[in-house]
């Protein structure tokens, strides 16, 4: 099955201030994505913006509908807000490696800001493993997808920098508290994280302190998305690795955050 296809926009809805959810219906049978994988989206077909833009899978909808969660940040995402149902986009994907399944461990899912996008897909796939979910954002307006996530973990923990929603503080402090209270059973967990580098570094610290395996999904500027241009590399213990190809999910300890 080709990983290059066209998809029709069926919905493009503002779900929070400056954040949209785009729903795309592929025009053919496509490879099913795994949580953590991403797509390159051709926005205009013109030359400005020129390159496709990477977006991780947010949710897999009915009939293979691809849901993307995006924040309006630059020219390309600004143009995306104007996409109407019926618009046709060119896609590549699913690309990269998703989050690995770790048997017998309880998932701790830690999302910072828009990092919630790939982790929502993951949380849905791990629904029956009773994941503990931690969401962090700058303020209440940036807390996304909690309706879906709280249906998976009714004890979901939300932290905001300014305290406008949930606990005031950084999300990794909440994770730390949870692990500290778990005592020796802390090691029965596996961490999955996506968010700003600072948050991922703090997660790596927790993974180390409690001796817990963990995986993080990284973000980087990409040109090709398929491993050819070497534009999106990240430092690992074994040298540079491509975020689009060997990632975007890396094992904590392997990647240098």
């Amino acid at each position: 099955m080709s990983r290059s296809f066209e998809a029709v926009v069926t919905e493009n809805r503002e779900v929070a201030v400056n954040h949209f959810r785009l729903t795309l219906a592929p025009d053919q049978e496509v490879t099913l994505p795994a949580p953590g994988q991403f797509y390159m989206l051709g926005i205009t077909g013109g030359t400005d913006p020129l390159l496709k833009r990477p977006f991780s899978l947010f949710r897999l909808g009915k009939n293979g509908a691809i849901n993307i969660l995006y924040r309006v940040k630059g020219k390309a995402t600004q143009i995306m807000t104007g996409l109407q149902p019926g618009s046709v986009l060119n896609l590549l994907g699913p690309l990269g490696n998703g989050f690995p399944n770790v048997e017998g461990k309880r998932p701790i899912i830690v999302a910072g800001g828009l990092g919630v996008a790939p982790l929502t897909a993951l949380a849905e796939s791990l629904r029956f493993d009773s994941p503990r979910i931690f969401v962090g954002a700058r303020y209440a307006g940036d807390v996304l997808a909690t309706d879906i996530l709280s249906s998976i973990d009714s004890d979901i923990s939300i932290s905001t920098d300014d305290g406008s929603m949930g606990i005031q503080g950084v999300v990794t402090d909440a994770v730390n508290e949870y692990l500290a209270s778990a005592g020796t059973s802390a090691q029965d967990h596996v961490i999955y994280g996506c968010g700003p580098r600072g948050m991922l570094r703090a997660l790596a610290g927790l993974s180390d302190r409690y001796g817990i395996e963990g995986y993080v999904s990284l973000e980087e500027y990409m040109a090709c998305g398929v491993g050819a241009c070497l534009g999106c590399v990240t430092k690992t213990a074994g040298g540079y690795r491509r975020v689009c190809k060997e990632g975007p999910v890396f094992r904590i300890g392997e990647v240098i955050l």
Binding site: D48, L51, E220, Y221, V233
Partner: peptide, 9 residues
């Protein structure tokens, strides 16, 4: 990194 940056066209 960053190794790439898009500019007009």
């Amino acid at each position: 990194v960053p190794r790439i940056y898009e500019t007009p066209s």
